[in-house]
Design a binder for these strands. Structure first.
Lengths: 150, 150
DNA sequence: ATTAAATCGGATAATAATGTCCGAAAAAGG
DNA sequence: CCTTTTTCGGACATTATTATCCGATTTAAT
């Protein structure tokens, strides 16, 4: 589902969102705290820094700082640099797939992927920290209670 | 999402469900038809055979046959032998996770996994073949009768 | 200026996933 | 019996992911 690397990134970002109030947090500190291989986490943080999600301060008293508001940073965005979504364009039906008319199995798989991504795109770091229970899975819909007539 | 191996398995099973009406289908034939590395597919089919999902007939005129009714075989089941679901027991919150009271981030990740799996568990091979458009994601209300009579 | 703390980034190693090769065994048909 | 077709299964090769190492650079504090 989420790659190991993506999970590490998410953990670090959550840590920063929760405990990075006063000044930047060194990578080594986070690695120790979270139980992540230090040198590997360093690479991940560099990446997030290049991506603009983190800001690095070098030298003594340096470290990383979370740039966006946790309420506006979705898990999908946070993890995107490590997911590599390399569009496998092989249809489930193989040779059976017509490719001219839309193949059902093909469409279905895209839907699966979309559903998985949508869930991550609806969750922000703030959600995770605050403990908002997961709302109904209705992509594109704001949470309007339509079940009141059952 | 789905591993490459899992996708291959799914393709082969769909092929058998669609074209395996009269007699077993050889692995080599499927590999050619679906554009899957022949020797690799062979390994996958062996696995499905040991799992009881396929039945192998050896020797000339042999091949593989789909054992369960496509309407009762879910994608989740078909792909399960290759997913290895190795329960990563690292909480998203790292050291912050209490582990005594239920950690929100922890719970949330399990929900993500569950949601992804649920979608696969609700789809049968017959669904894919028949072209049933994906119904609303309602776990209790499966669109295909997977337990109507027994 | 010197030192210590920290990121930066390239090179490399270890592990897992994917793909290949080949010989043995089984079954069918002559 | 012999040949052909096919699965079986172990060993190996390739590639991607994950992890480690180390020297260079930047910065703050002494």
């Amino acid at each position: 589902m989420l790659s190991q690397t993506g999970l590490y990134a998410l953990q670090a970002l959550l840590h920063l969102a929760a405990k990075g109030r006063n000044g930047p947090v060194p990578a080594g500190h986070m690695a120790r705290e979270l139980g992540i291989p230090a040198n590997y986490l360093a690479k991940i943080l560099q990446r997030l820094s290049r991506e603009g999600i983190l800001e690095a301060t070098r030298g003594a008293r340096g470290g990383y700082r979370l740039v966006p508001d946790p309420a506006r940073l979705t898990v999908a965005t946070a993890v995107a640099p490590f997911q590599e979504l390399k569009t496998p364009r092989v249809c489930l039906m193989g040779g059976l797939c017509d490719l001219s008319n839309p193949c059902v199995a093909h469409t279905r798989r895209l839907q699966w992927n979309a559903a998985a991504l949508a869930s991550l795109a609806r969750t922000t770091l703030a959600d995770l920290l605050a403990g908002t229970p997961e709302e109904a899975d209705r992509p594109g819909h704001s949470n309007q209670p339509t079940e009141n007539d059952r």
